[in-house]
Amino acid sequence: MVEGLFLSQADSRPMYLQIMEQIKLKVVAGDWPPGFALPSIRELAAATKVSVITVKRAYRELESEGVVVTRQGRGSFVAESAGQAELRDTELNRYLVQLLDAADRLGLSADELMLCLEAALEERGKQ
C-alpha cells in the first residue's frame, strides 16, 4: 500500500510543486534513501487523489533537477547523487534568496545585513 502525500488546496502553489517539495523532504529526512524505488506514477496519483499527469510532471521536474533517475521499464529511483547535504543547500538557498530580496526592498546595505544576521544569531545563542 502506497502512502499518499499531503497536498493543500489552500496552498497557492501548483500541485506539481507541492508534490516535488514533499518528495524532497522525504529524501532529506532519509525516509527515501538514495536508490529507493519511488512508487509508480499511477500508484502515487491514486494514493494522493491527484491526476496522473500532475504526478508525471513532478517526476519529470525532479529528474531534471537530478533528485530522481528514471530507468526505462523499471521505474523511478532516488538518485545516488541526491546527497542530503546538497538538497539541504538548495532548500536553504531558497530562503537566502528571499532574505536578500527583502533586504533589497528595505534598502539595507550588505554590511548592515551582515550586522543584523550576526545580531540575530547571537540573540538565538543566548536562549
Binding site: 499511477r42 496519483a45 491514486a46 487523489k49 491527484v50 496522473v52
Partner: peptide, 11 residues
C-alpha cells in the same frame, strides 16, 4: 472523488 481516484491505479 476519493473512490474515483481508485480508477487511476489502472492504466
Amino acid at each position: 472523488l476519493e473512490e474515483l481516484a481508485e480508477v487511476l491505479e489502472n492504466e
